[in-house]
Design a protein around this nucleic acid. Structure first.
Lengths: 131, 131
DNA sequence: GGCAACCTTGTAGTTGACTGCAAGGTTGCC
DNA sequence: GGCAACCTTGCAGTCAACTACAAGGTTGCC
């Protein structure tokens, strides 16, 4: 699979994939005789892992640490475990914030929906929000 | 309350608070006779809202849109509602990613914990992760 | 073999969200 | 009144994570 196909598959841009390779998040792929990057399907799984970890607010640097752990077959040192535990705690905190924010938005939306739509006739009113 | 106290209370830096004011996320506060910013307690709630919304992956620009809605007492236009609905959907997608990533980390942590801690004697092994 | 679509490297620019610093004013306490 | 801690504005710098562009090579199809 060439980079364009992987980009399509993963939803990332080809530039981003090259960028990930440049910061060593991705291993250097095989090359075709013409010098094009040639990926196997397993790389898509790695990209998915990166995306999920990023969604947790991990930096790409931290994602790399995690990937090294996976790649190296894990390590059991104290600080490795505490790295994981800390990030799990971070995720839990973030889940809480997400739930709070979601509730706030649902509340806003439901209050907005309960208003009479007919009153929405002032174009200036909408412009406040359009930006 | 002066900016330092608000910073303390909210967990943000004074610079960040001034930055938020500069991009009009926060209203201009009262000033003391000496020209110092003088905040009421309600501003802390606004900062909490900002933090939560940011946790959802909203940009400060989008947070501002939401705050305008709150400030303006809402609007019912189609695109306002769709703005909210879209972001609620985004949050739900992110919650899903967070759960997936959390599971992955818990799995990594539990597998790591199951290994014999006595085998963790190679300092080079740890250095891989220390970065 | 001609052509569009796709790829290569390298480097520079952008965006969002801060963060630091300089030069100076204010507060509150001893 | 002296001093440390805190504040002011303004502007430049940083960092992460892309994103764009230039100049050129490869592929696959007609």
């Amino acid at each position: 699979m060439r980079i364009g196909a992987l980009a399509e598959l993963s939803g990332l841009s080809a530039q981003t994939i090259r960028y990930y390779e440049s910061i060593e998040l991705l291993p250097e792929p095989e090359r075709t005789t013409g010098g094009y990057r040639d990926y196997g399907v397993d790389i898509a799984e790695r990209l998915r892992f990166i995306r999920d970890a990023q969604a947790c607010g991990l930096t790409l640097d931290e994602v790399q640490t995690l990937l090294s752990m996976k790649d190296a077959g894990l390590a059991t040192c104290e600080h490795t475990l505490s790295f994981l535990d800390r990030h799990i705690a971070d995720i839990d905190a973030q889940l809480e914030r997400l739930h709070a924010a979601r509730a706030e938005m649902v509340e806003l939306a439901s209050r907005a929906r309960d208003l009479d739509p007919a009153t929405c006739t002032d174009p200036n009113r909408c412009q406040v929000i359009a930006s």
